[in-house]
């Protein structure tokens, strides 16, 4: 360790706030990028699945009328 105590590590001889703000913003933004990319992936997958189901029910239009009201439960 380059520091003698935890408080010395946190204050960094008066430069603590500058250093810690930078590190926090860095970690925060990288995490936000990853989470945003993940939610986008999920949104795209959800949309594709919806379109796929729509198409599949579309091809079965000739099926009995009751079938169009039945819900599909993907699990």
């Amino acid at each position: 360790m380059a520091f003698d105590s935890l408080s010395a590590f946190l204050t960094m001889e008066g430069h603590g706030s500058y250093v810690w703000v930078c590190y926090c913003v860095f970690v925060l933004l990288l995490t936000a990028l990853a989470l945003w990319s993940r939610s986008r992936r999920h949104a795209v997958l959800r949309e594709q699945r919806r379109l796929l189901e729509l198409e599949e029910s579309g091809t079965r239009e000739q099926a009995p009328a009751a079938a169009t009201f039945s819900r599909i439960h993907p699990s």
Binding site: M1, A2, F3, F9, M12, E13, G14, H15, G16, Y18, V19, C22, Y23, F26
Partner: peptide
């Protein structure tokens, strides 16, 4: 790299500890 730079690397003779920002500034 970040833990090493933040806690273990020696401080700079001129800037003291504020130079530790280099470990995220330069990679970015």
């Amino acid at each position: 790299g970040l833990v090493w730079g933040l806690a273990f690397a020696p401080k700079d003779y001129l800037q003291g500890n504020s130079y530790r920002i280099i470990f995220i500034h330069v990679p970015s």
